[in-house]
């Protein structure tokens, strides 16, 4: 009888141990993980990859003078993306990735934008007071941007019973600062079907 009780107690402990706790597994960041069906890292990555490809394949680089003698790489400032969808989408996630990929392509130069420039300017200002005159950054030496990149995210949701369809459209455009002409427009559409 006592052996039976002991066995039952051990079994109960094993069950309790198996029930509790949390499992955390590191996984490849390229892995697609759709849990709730809402906008996630996979969507952000798709947008960044597609937009960089579309942008660097556009004619605007040629029109800017790529391949001509004395060509200077265009300076792009990455601006804001307006979220018009019905989900909280951190647009910074894919815009940072786009900024990094454009810079690494070596075809464009990136100017500080999206809230970074005040910090840079504050540092320059501080240097005038605290850094030695030889090393202090000079005022009026910023390189003006040739183009501003901005865009929007829109979504349409349709739902019936236990099925939801969500359509996202991410649009980006590059605008010539001097002429205000749009020199490139790119978009990516993502459609998801979520079933319960």
């Amino acid at each position: 009888m006592s052996r039976l009780l002991a066995a039952l107690a051990v079994a109960a402990l094993v069950v309790l141990a198996a029930c509790g706790g949390r499992t955390v597994t590191r996984t490849d960041t390229d892995t697609t993980t759709d849990l709730s069906g809402r906008w996630n890292d996979t969507d952000a990555r798709m947008v960044a990859d597609s937009m960089v490809d579309q942008c660097l394949d556009g004619d605007w680089l040629v029109e800017h003078g790529r391949g001509r003698e004395g060509y200077e790489k265009p300076v792009v400032v990455v601006g804001s993306v307006i979220n018009r969808s019905s989900e909280h989408i951190s647009t910074d996630v894919f815009m940072n990735e786009i900024e990094r990929s454009l810079l690494e392509s070596g075809l464009v130069r990136i100017s500080a934008g999206r809230g970074e420039d005040p910090e840079v300017r504050a540092e320059r200002y501080d240097q005038q007071r605290f850094a030695s005159p030889e090393t202090a950054a000079e005022f009026g030496q910023e390189v003006g941007a040739d183009y501003v990149m901005m865009g929007s995210v829109d979504s349409i949701t349709d739902e019936e019973g236990d099925t939801r369809a969500v359509y996202y459209q991410v649009s980006l455009e590059l605008i010539d600062v001097e002429t205000a002409l749009k020199v490139w427009m790119g978009s990516l559409e993502i459609k998801k079907i979520i079933e319960w």
Partner: peptide, 17 residues
């Protein structure tokens, strides 16, 4: 304010469903 607008949009979608 942009995030607040997201919540307002969700109300419309939610009530429709």
């Amino acid at each position: 304010l942009g995030e607040a607008l997201v919540e307002c949009r969700r109300v419309g979608e939610k009530l429709t469903v």
